[in-house]
């Protein structure tokens, strides 16, 4: 096999994983912008998406589309409950204690999932067949196309929502300055709730579209969450294209690193990038310091 074909394969694999990282990173960014906290339960939303669609599909025996929709709705409900029960009741809490609460929440969600559905790994069927598609000597699966397609749709819809709808604009206003936003009559707390709704729905979608390729279990959220967090940090925690580029960059570097250097360094690559960014460019790779966050 020619080297350029190999590289093409690494790139395609990298983009596919990167798209998932981007979706998860997006969730981090949206909540960060509304609340200035990092929601470490984001990875659990991803896990819940996969596990719940497995549940609705294989235990309740619903058709796949219905299972997917229900899984997203159920995860969103969990996101709302999380915000209502764990974030909102705390008045004047420091961001640090809120972050720790999200870590606690993530452990709780993971533990409950384990108790309810056990510790087994589960497979989800592909959305449309599993015959590989040949692209210039490299191959991808139809599921990879679903991942690309759904990621693009979600990101475009988000962009439109934040730029053109009143609610989206209100959320951006909160991101820029919470006090000023509430002075002009924006219900900040509602916007925080919205941010949890959007990011839990998005996270669960990421968990669902990746599950046919990678399978799902109660503990898949930790690693995916951390990688998504890396993507968001590379993108400077913006909910714009920075996070998307961050995710793709991370996915491609991991894949190239595993293929050309050694797979032992795969996770190390992600976390070295994370550390470098935090040290050298804490505002993210793609923007100037102190620009607006959305």
């Amino acid at each position: 096999m020619e080297l350029h074909q190999q590289i093409l394969q690494y790139l395609l694999s990298g983009f596919s994983t990167g798209a998932i990282y981007a979706l998860i990173g997006f969730g981090f960014a949206i909540i960060y912008n509304a609340t200035t906290i990092i929601n470490f339960a984001q990875g659990e939303f991803v896990m819940l998406g996969g596990m719940l669609s497995y549940f609705f599909l294989s235990v309740v025996h619903l058709p796949l589309p219905a299972a997917v929709v229900l899984a997203v709705l159920a995860t969103t409900a969990v996101g709302i409950a999380f915000e209502r029960l764990a974030i909102r009741p705390l008045k004047n809490a420091t961001p640090l204690s809120l972050v720790i609460i999200t870590i606690g929440g993530s452990i709780l969600i993971r533990g409950l999932t384990m108790l309810i559905w056990g510790k087994d790994t589960h497979a989800l069927p592909s959305f449309s067949g599993s015959e590989p598609i040949d692209i210039g000597g490299a191959t991808i699966l139809p599921q990879n196309l679903w991942i690309f397609g759904i990621t693009i749709v979600i990101i475009v819809v988000n962009k439109l929502f934040f730029n053109y709808s009143i609610t989206g604009k209100a959320m951006r206003a909160c991101a820029t300055n919470r006090r000023a936003a509430s002075l002009v009559g924006i219900d900040v707390r509602r916007m925080v709730l919205f941010s949890f709704v959007i990011s839990s729905a998005m996270g669960s979608m990421a968990g669902i579209i990746i599950a046919p390729l990678t399978m799902t279990a109660y503990d898949v959220g930790i690693m995916l969450g951390l990688k998504g967090f890396c993507a968001a940090i590379i993108g400077g925690l913006s909910s714009g294209f920075g996070t998307v580029l961050g995710g793709l960059l991370l996915g491609v570097l991991e894949s190239l690193g595993a293929g050309l250097i050694s797979s032992g360094y795969k996770d190390a690559i992600a976390f070295v990038i994370l550390l470098l960014i935090l040290f050298i460019r804490p505002q993210g790779l793609f923007k100037k310091a102190d620009s607006e966050r959305v």
Binding site: T214, S263, K266
Partner: peptide, 20 residues
Amino acid sequence: DDTFGPKDTDMTAQLTKIRG
């Protein structure tokens, strides 16, 4: 002689190398 992590979600990179 290649490896993968216990929580890795994609091994195409290693397998591409093997295919070559």
